[in-house]
Structure formats: C-alpha cells, structure tokens
Simulated scan of single mutants.
Amino acid sequence: MINKKTGRAVILAGAAIFAPISAYADIVIKVGFAVGGGYDVNARLMANHLGRFLPEAGSIYVENVDGAGSLRLAKMMLAKEPADGTVIGSISSWFPVGATFDPALVGLDFSQLSWIGGIGTTQERLCAVSSSLGIADISDFAEQTFQLGATTSGTTDVITRLVQNTLHADFEIVRGFSGTAPVRAAIIRGELDGYCSLRVRDLEKVFEPGTMTAILQASYRPNLDLPYPLLRDLVEAPEDIEIVDFILSHELFQYSFALPPGTPEDILTVYRQAFDAMVQDPEFLAEAEKLRMQPSPITGAELEDHLDRIQKTPLEVLARAGAMLD
C-alpha cells in the first residue's frame, strides 16, 4: 500500500490496519521526561516505526513535557488532551500503582486512560554509586554518607526511598531532576554520587567503564544471573516482602503508552493492533537492539488487567506500602 501523503510504501503485518483518526493527521507522542532518558528514547523508537502500521496517519513526532517526574503530563492527559487519536502520552510507570496510596497522586484515576501497550525492558534496575567512593557491598552502601539523585516524583524517587528505608541507610536523596538523563549528567560532572535507576547497559554505554559500581537490584523481574543482591532479599520482616513486590510491580508499566480518557473504542483498537504489530516487527527490533533497549512488550489489555488488580489491593497492604516509603 502507498501512503498518499508521503508517497512511501506502507508495510503491514498481517491484515491491513485502517486508522479511524482524521486522514493523515499528525500524531504527537508526549513524554513526561527530559530528552535523553529511557522514556524519551523509547518514545522516539516508537515514533520511528508506529507510522508503518497506521497507514492513514501523518507524521509522528515526540514532544517532551517534563515536570514533576511526569506528573504535569499525567494531569494533562487526564484532563485536557484531545481524545481523537492525535495525542499519545508516556508517563511514569509509578503512577498507576502509586495512585492507590501516594498522597502526591490522590484523585488521579489512571484506569481512565486508554492503554495502548508498553515496550518494557528486560534490563534490570540497579542502585549504583561512583567507584571512587570505595563502596564494595551492601554494608558499606547502607552505612556511608553520600548523595543519590532522583526525580521530583515517580519511579526513581520511589525506588531510592524504598532502598533507603529497607536498608535503614544514611545516604541523602537529592530530588528535583526532570529525568534520569539529568541525573546521569550530574553524576558525570561529579555533583552526585549515584542513583537507583541505572540499567545494566548504562554501566558501559553512559559511564566510562569501571567508574560506577552496582550494589543491588531493585527490579520486579530481576536477573538472578547477575552478581548483585535483590532488594526483596534484604527486607528484614518477611511480611514486608509482599509490600516490596507490590511497589516494584509498577515496572510492568515501564515505557507504556496511553490515549486520553474518552478515546473511542475503534481508535484504541487500531492503536493496539498497530502497537502489537510494531513490537514484533524486525525493523523495530533491529533498532531496539542497536540502542541496547531489550524490549519486553506488554499489551494494552494486560496493562488494564494489572491496573484492575492494583486497584483491588486491600487497604492494609496500601497502608503498609505507604509506611515503607515514608
């Protein structure tokens, strides 16, 4: 099929997908974080490929709407973005889980969003510090004083607080960053000592080899072959393991995409079909491999199901989760 606007051939996986959005309308993927972080990179990866599975769409581009760890964009998506298929949002994976008990997210109902799907990642989330600190193990990490960077709210802040409270650690959390890219830049400049959202690839891709020391894994789906202890295994009270797993389950929403409330079902269906085809596409996977992104896709329906389970979490579990992050 030939796109009448661009004159380029459109490659479809399986049956043709016809978008019910306005013919040749441009689509913007709004990202709640600064340029250069994981959310931004995954949004640009999606922008490069989704159009081949939406033959009636115009250009697809990315707009960074950073602020408060993507809370600004989350509120925009829930309140005022058009529900006609022209705006897609990518917000913190923490919000769907955090909204069940986090005071900063009270009143936000993320089940209203129309979830397209998530690119996800198999890359584990690590806590890592500058090797110049001489920290070699959990004991040193918990007892020494240093500074870890975090966003204003969202995943990086939550993980760092969870690690600090689980280990009863003495490190300081420096908040206010708009994404992981500014955190990494501050570490490279020597203004911070580390952070707790580092991916395995970052040990060599972002930082000079040997300059960062990974201490532990704080992942919902950890890699047991890595030589770093799991956060859940460091919990003192056995009953709190359930709480750590609940908090870390937000990772299932990693690099996910959604449409605003009120989006017609036919538009959502088209986007879900296009997304599911895209994440299996050889060209998409080849670019992801080049970027060392290692996708672990999840469908929009699966995200909805997980969100439904989250919202049915008993109140006593939510109270304990809140206390663990206090």
Rank of each mutant, 00 (worst) to 15 (best):
E56V: 03
P222K: 04
P222L: 02
A23C: 12
L216H: 06
Y61D: 11
D276C: 07
R320Q: 01
T6Y: 07
L230Y: 02
P295M: 09
R125H: 15
A83L: 05
D193M: 07
P96N: 04
I29K: 08
V158T: 15
A186F: 06
Y228S: 08
G69W: 07
E287G: 08
E265L: 13
D240V: 03
I215V: 09
L108D: 07
Q123F: 05
V244D: 10
I138Q: 03
V206F: 09
F246V: 03
G300H: 00
L113Y: 02
L268F: 04
V317Y: 07
T180C: 06
A19S: 15
T145C: 11
S132F: 04
S93G: 14
L71P: 01
V244G: 06
P55A: 04
G7C: 08
D40W: 11
E124M: 12
D240E: 11
V62S: 03
P182G: 06
T152W: 05
A34Y: 09
T86E: 03
L133M: 03
V200F: 13
T151F: 01
E316H: 13
G85M: 03
R175A: 08
P182W: 05
D326W: 05
E143R: 15
F110S: 01
G176Q: 00
G154P: 00
T180Y: 09
P55E: 08
A319H: 11
C127M: 11
L167N: 09
P103G: 04
A23P: 11
L315T: 12
P222W: 04
P20V: 07
A15C: 11
T86W: 05
S59P: 04
H250E: 11
G7Y: 01
K5R: 15
F171G: 05
G37Q: 10
L234D: 07
L268G: 05
G262P: 04
L203N: 09
L126Y: 08
P260R: 10
S178D: 13
E172P: 00
I173S: 01
F257I: 09
A237D: 15
F284M: 02
D137W: 02
S132N: 10
F177P: 03
R292K: 14
L224K: 14
P264K: 06
I135R: 02
A25S: 12
T155H: 10
R199A: 12
S296Q: 13
I138S: 08
M1C: 13
I173E: 09
G176V: 06
I187V: 07
N3C: 09
R232M: 13
E63P: 00
A79R: 14
V279Y: 00
D225K: 13
T313Q: 01
D84I: 02
V10K: 11
E304I: 13
G98A: 08
I21Q: 15
H49A: 06
V41N: 10
A301P: 00
D140L: 02
V174I: 01
A57E: 09
Q294I: 12
F110E: 00
I241C: 09
V158R: 13
A258Y: 06
D308H: 15
S296N: 14
A23K: 15
A214N: 03
A301F: 10
